[in-house]
Design a protein around this nucleic acid. Sequence first.
DNA 1: TAGCAAAAATAATAATTATCAGCTATTTAA
DNA 2: TTAAATAGCTGATAATTATTATTTTTGCTA
Lengths: 234, 234
Amino acid sequence: MNKNFDEPLCVQCNQDFKTIFHKLTPEQLEYLNNVKSCTVVKKGRILYEEGNRISGIFCINKGILKVYKTGVEGKEQIIKFAKPGEVIGYRSVINGEPACTSVKILEDAVLCHINSQDLYHLLKENAEFGIELLQIACKELGEANNYITDIAQKSVRERLAEILLHLKDEFGINEEGLINISLTREELANIIGTATESVIRLLSEFKTEGLIELQGRKIKLIDLNKIKKISNVF
Amino acid sequence: MNKNFDEPLCVQCNQDFKTIFHKLTPEQLEYLNNVKSCTVVKKGRILYEEGNRISGIFCINKGILKVYKTGVEGKEQIIKFAKPGEVIGYRSVINGEPACTSVKILEDAVLCHINSQDLYHLLKENAEFGIELLQIACKELGEANNYITDIAQKSVRERLAEILLHLKDEFGINEEGLINISLTREELANIIGTATESVIRLLSEFKTEGLIELQGRKIKLIDLNKIKKISNVF
DNA sequence: TAGCAAAAATAATAATTATCAGCTATTTAA
DNA sequence: TTAAATAGCTGATAATTATTATTTTTGCTA
C-alpha cells in the first residue's frame, strides 16, 4: 500500500485521504509519524466501549468501523460509520470524558493511535490544525442535527429509503452495483431506530416494488428516483 | 447590569457566564470588545433562518433562543435552546456554509455579534481559544448523539418525561416551583418529535397521576422520582 | 372589555410500528 | 462436515401514536 517507503506513513495516508492533518507542517507530520502507533485490527473486535477512558484518538487508514451507543435495555443505536481518512475518539479526548460511544470493527482495519498529549501538543502548536478539527466536529454536528430531524419526523419507511441512499453515497457500489457495505438487518434497524422485523418487511416490500435487489446482505438500488421520492430528500 | 463601567462589556459578560472567551488574553478581550456589536432583540423575532448566509456568530448576553430545523412539510424540529453565555452560529461560520438551523427569540435578548473575520483572527492568534470552541462543539456533539438515541429508542411518554427533567435542569425553577421557560404544547411536541395532541394528552395524564402541575404554559414537577422512572434516565 | 385568533383540550378513528411466536436459511466454529 | 448459533423471514396481534374534527379556554388588541 505504501507507494514510497521514503515518506513517513502519515504523509502518505494524508495524501491518500486528505485527513485532518493536512494543515500540519512537514515537521509536524514527521512528529506525528514518530509518536503515532499503527495497528491492524480484525473484523469483529471491539475497539473501545462506551464509558471507557481512551488514551487518544484513532486515525483510520483502512477498514470500516461502526460507532454506536447503547440505549434503553441495551439496544444498540448506530451513530455513524467511520472509514479511511476519518478520525474517531476526539470528542472524548477533547472533553476529557469517558467515551460516549462504542466502536466495533466491521471490516479488517489499520488504525493509527495518537496519544492525547501528542494531539494537544499539535493543537497548541498549530492553530490551523485546531480549526481543521473544529471543522470536522462542526460537520458532524450538522449531520447529527439532520439525523435528529429525520428520526423525529419521518416514518420508518422514509428513513429506510433515506439510509439506503446514504449508504450508497458514503460507501459506493461495486462492479455489480451492490452497495459496498454489509450490514445485518438488525444493524439497519439500529441505524434508523426501528425493529429488525420492520426492516425485513420493508426491504422485501421495496424489492417487490422493484426499487431494490437483495443478495444476502448486499443491496442494489434499482430505481433511485422512486427511492428518493419515498425518502423525502431533495 | 454592568457593575463596572470601566470594564469592557465582554470582560463582564465573560465573568458572569464563563463564555468560550475565557481563554483570551486581556488584550484579545479588549479587541473582541471593540469589534463586536451588541443589539437588543425582541421576543418573537427571527434572528436568522435555515439557508441564510450569516456574517458571524452571536454571543448571548441575555434572553432565551430557540434553535430549530425545518423538516418534512415545514414541521419544526427544535434542536436546542440557547441561553446567556452560549454562542450560536459558529457551526455555519466555521464550515463556511449557510445556516443549517433557524433561530427565534423566545425571551427578549441582548446579543453580541462577532464577524467571521474577527472570529478567525482570534482563532488563528490563540490556539487555546480554538480548543475552547472545539470543546463546545464536542459537547454539543455528545448531546446530539444522546438525543438521537433517545428519539430513536424511547416512547413519546418516556421522551416527554425526560424533556421535562431536562428543562428543569437547564432553566431552573422559580419561587413557586415552576420551570423557568414557557413553551407551547406544540413546541414541546417539536422537541420530542411527536404530535401536539399527544403532548397535551400525556401532560394531562401526568397531571392526573400526580406527577406534575400545570399553570398555563408553566409546569411544576411534583414527583421527580416517578418522572425519572418513566423517562428511563439513570 | 368585547371580540377575535391562537392555543389547549378532548374524543373518535385510522395508521403505523412493535411484539411475539414459529419457522427456515445461512454462518460460524468445533 | 456437521452441529450450533445467528440471522432472516412471515403472520397474527397488540400497542402506540397520528390524524381529524370539534369544543373550550386563554391571551391579546382594537
